[in-house]
Design a protein around this nucleic acid. Structure first.
Lengths: 118, 118
DNA sequence: CTCATTACTTACATTTTTTATAGTACCTCA
DNA sequence: TGAGGTACTATAAAAAATGTAAGTAATGAG
């Protein structure tokens, strides 16, 4: 997830789409491999880095960090560092983060319906 | 969008997530770069290949084809070929395709709210 | 002094997705 | 005969996302 190349066609396309379509804009924000699951877990309350890792057994620390950073940048999660040793860092959804609940619920509903159909 | 490698960790992770979380399952299905916009347009009724292309000025024909194929595989769009020359092919949402409307609406709502905030 | 713990970071490799470019078949109309 | 329209396909390359493996800092416990 290295920095996206601002000269690429891909970047321009994403920009244009996000500008025109709020759905696509939203999808780009919550659209990493792990972003949605992370948000789902956090809907139930704050979690530490290590706790999240346990909930997502297959995620690597790198990926978890990257996705959390992206979510943080987009103001979806709040990161709180406690100056302790060993360190303790808590992640919590922001208000707009919690606002994802209906989005996620619709996705779940649709997902379940689609699964049945197939 | 060549076939995904079934031996990769990435594939396994996606599988596992999709199995457990219907939201992620749904996100994987409607999650290509262009899939959501295509569905959004098709919510207003069927469109021909060329019409879709005009709606999405920056998409390449290859990408449009790929995304439509994926949507078709997932029973979200129906493809109808008319045996004419020059050829005419129409794309239309299926029932479950139209069921995406509330999902897309929630995404829009959230997207707009998030945009304002930022 | 050494070790364990936690939440990372870094460098690199691989996989997946997207873009670029150039075709193709078919018939129709001029 | 030859151009033109439509909906594609093939191939290659670029870019983005994800994964692997190995560190790091700080400090309190033993």
């Amino acid at each position: 997830m290295s920095a996206i190349k601002k000269s690429s066609t891909n970047f321009a396309n994403k920009q244009a789409l996000a500008d025109e379509c709020p759905e696509v804009y939203a999808a780009l924000i919550i659209g990493g491999q792990w972003a949605l699951v992370i948000c789902s877990w956090l809907l139930n309350g704050k979690l530490r880095f290590g706790e999240l890792k346990k909930k997502l057994p297959n995620i690597t620390e790198r990926m978890l960090t990257l996705q959390l950073r992206k979510l943080e940048e987009n103001k979806i999660v709040k990161r709180t560092v406690y100056a302790e040793v060993p360190p303790r860092v808590e992640y919590e959804l922001t208000e707009i983060g919690y606002d994802l609940r209906p989005v996620i619920m619709q996705l779940e509903l649709w997902g379940n319906k689609h699964k049945e159909l197939i």
